[in-house]
Design a protein around this nucleic acid. Structure first.
Length: 286
DNA sequence: ACCCAGGCGACGA
DNA sequence: TCGTCGCATGGG
């Protein structure tokens, strides 16, 4: 069935195409994606959002996934004094930081290194198609998609146990390049418990401590650890520095980032700046 | 043909 | 602790 949530600070298109997730697809004004083995459609309304094909019992799950409990209007006041951030906020209004599944987020951002978003998306899609499990699409969602070019088969993100049993050669169809061995190493360390993701789901765990756990994986450095902590564990104090952020730091903040980018909502500021840099092309040479 | 992408590890100074 | 380089792949 459908669930409607009133919330004026949620923009599905901006949130789901902002480079924090790689598994949502647009079909007209409906985004479809999978989390927790469930597929739903997400459609923005005048003053809220509808989850198509979601069950009432899943209300808390999706509310948490889309971070609808946090008052972003309040958070944004932290950034109002900064000129660049104010502009960035205007063009990113309605973006939220998702709470994605940890293993999926970890692997996705391992794949992201020295890579671009369209290609990351393709590799993640092939990973799910090859090693995930088929997900049943609810009839309510299928009905809405009648007449749309909607894929018949959807696959979950494979778990650590599944991937830990594979070899680099098994991953060749993904065309992940040098990242294949990083994926295997991550899956093995997560599955063995050497990297305990459940332990990281604890806001009281000191940030650097959590980060060092993730960095035990070969191919996980500061940036990927930061992204995993931000987009899966909702550590809003994370501030991942990718090439876009480095450009904007060099171009717009030669004397350093404002304090609000080091505080408890640094990750939200980071996401605004990331979008600003990508949309305006700040610092990028042509 | 080049350059680049939500980086990282190895290596040398 | 710091820069620099190679890494696979594919799109611009």
């Amino acid at each position: 069935m459908d669930i409607y949530i009133e919330n004026e600070f949620f923009d599905a298109e901006r949130t789901l195409t902002s480079g924090q997730c790689f598994r949502w697809r647009a079909f007209g004004n409906i985004f479809c994606g999978i989390a927790d083995g469930k597929i739903i459609g997400v459609r923005n309304e005048e003053k809220g959002v509808t989850w198509i094909g979601a069950e009432p019992i899943e209300l808390d799950f999706w509310t948490r996934y889309f971070d609808l409990a946090l008052d972003y209007n309040e958070v944004n006041k932290c950034f109002a004094d900064d000129n660049i951030l104010s502009q960035a906020m205007d063009m990113s209004k309605g973006i939220r930081i998702l709470r994605q599944e940890p293993f999926e987020t970890l692997i996705s951002f391992i794949i992201s290194q020295n890579n671009n978003i369209p290609r990351i998306t393709g590799i993640v899609e092939r990973l799910c198609k090859c090693f995930g499990e088929k997900v049943t699409v609810p009839q309510t969602l299928l009905d809405k998609m009648n007449g749309v070019d909607f894929p018949p088969d959807w696959y979950s993100f494979p778990n650590a146990e599944r991937l830990s049993a594979l070899t680099e050669q098994d991953l060749e169809p993904l065309h992940a390049g040098f990242r294949a061995r990083y994926i295997i190493d991550a899956a093995q360390k997560v599955h063995s418990g050497e990297v305990n993701l459940k332990q990281l789901d604890n806001p009281d765990l000191p940030y650097e401590e959590a980060k060092n756990v993730l960095k035990k994986i070969v191919g996980v450095g500061d940036k990927i650890a930061d992204c995993t902590l931000l987009f899966a564990f909702h550590r809003l104090d994370a501030f991942p520095k990718d090439v876009w952020i480095k450009r904007i730091m060099a171009e717009c903040y030669p004397n350093g980032l404002p304090d609000c980018c080091c505080g408890s909502y640094a990750g939200i500021a980071q996401q605004y700046l990331f979008e600003y840099a990508r949309k305006t092309g700040v610092g990028k040479k042509k």
